[in-house]
Design a binder for these strands. Structure first.
Lengths: 221, 221
DNA sequence: CCTGATGGTAAACAGCTGTTTTAAATTTAC
DNA sequence: GTAAATTTAAAACAGCTGTTTACCATCAGG
């Protein structure tokens, strides 16, 4: 192997470029030239560009799911079959999300990738992620369900996705927002600071009053 | 002119394809063939693909800004220099956002485009939108500032973006989420329904308690 | 020393991209 | 009716895309 493994050099370069420019806008030639690797190496090691994209995600999501499962195990044990409070669940998820990329100083990249996974059409990616990592998410939502028994199922579903949107949108567009914030308020914004600000907002959103019932005979839409 | 203007036929087709697949993934040939228009017509009428993308946005954002300015005028007149309540401001914004594409039944497209404008790197687009339509947004945030005098400026800034994330993320990924929701809860979800669910969440989030102050000597990050 | 992998390289492939060019058709103005 | 200006049409352009091919290096086991 070279000074660093060719495979990891490709992954390291690819994830940064993907995060910066998106998948379609990042060519294999751009990746390989920046990684100082031969063009064919990508297809040799990964088979295709699609698989490379999935590999980039797997390198984050595999450790994430493992740690998250472990953290939930620990939590369930601590509460011994009782109900785990919502704050505790959210806190645990946030901590795990931050832990994984922290080791490589790449939270920004990780979040941006998550955002792309949602926004870019890339059907194969959503299917891959859903199939590979849908399990942890189900486990988490089930625990959230027990923590918020008053919330109708549909309402909880939507609110969870609202908050997912908040977090991914904010942290993935962080670069741009940070620039504006600093210009307007001269304030240095760290991720840690943002998470601190996010917490009360997410909690308040999840415990907001239920919406007024719609009149059953409202016009169709 | 043909049965319908060539220019509008291009725009109609382009916005749908852009919304479905993103900008880079949508070729001019795809657009023109589906619009039954000659390939060169795009470059003839719009000059370039970039300009076509901007034109697609302008067709939504121009009427939006006009109406939104008018609605804010009306609101300021009604409250005669006094403070406009936050709920009123949010309500007005929501109403205007829904009004514009309602005439063409293309809210889904509009939201998806907004999401793309944020998530796709496309530097020129963000610059164009910021330069062309930054004004209304500034006016709106200033009114929000007066409506929430207790909120520190930075906190308000971030919360507004949190909520922007929630709305854009949800409504732009609506297709996918709708599929999941229907499968899981057998529920038909209309945009109107979603907006109804969003309202209490957004209000609660904006009025959430302030986060605990960080200890000044916390470790850097 | 030969054999057979394994990892890496350069070149070529077919296909699609946005854009331009050239020519024909159509509309408008006088 | 003729001339000028728009608009459409088809073809060609250069450039980039992901992928494949054929070839070379390195090195282990026999």
């Amino acid at each position: 192997m070279g000074q660093t493994d060719t495979v990891t050099r490709i992954l390291d370069t690819a994830e940064v470029l993907f995060a910066e420019r998106g998948f379609a806008e990042t060519s294999l030639r751009h990746i390989t030239s920046k990684a100082k690797v031969n063009l064919a190496a990508v297809n040799y090691h990964f088979g295709s560009k699609k698989s490379l994209i999935q590999a980039v995600f797997a390198r984050y999501l595999d450790p994430f799911t493992e740690r998250f499962h472990a953290a939930l195990d620990e939590l369930e044990a601590r509460y011994a079959g009782g109900v785990i409070p919502l704050e505790e669940l959210l806190e645990t998820m946030a901590r795990t999300v931050l832990e994984v990329p922290a080791e490589r100083n790449s939270l920004k990249v990780f979040m941006r990738l998550l955002g792309l996974a949602y926004s870019q059409a890339q059907g194969h990616l959503r299917r891959y992620i859903q199939g590979q990592y849908g399990g942890v998410f189900s486990r988490f939502t089930e625990l959230v369900r027990r923590a918020t028994p008053d919330l109708p199922d549909a309402e909880r579903f939507w609110r969870l996705h609202f908050m997912l949107g908040t977090v991914i949108f904010t942290l993935s567009g962080l670069e741009a927002l940070r620039d504006i914030a600093e210009k307007d308020y001269g304030e240095q914004v760290s991720v840690r600071d943002l998470v601190r600000r996010l917490r009360p907002v997410v909690v308040a959103a999840m415990s907001a009053p239920l919406p007024d019932a719609t009149f059953p005979a409202a016009e169709a839409s």
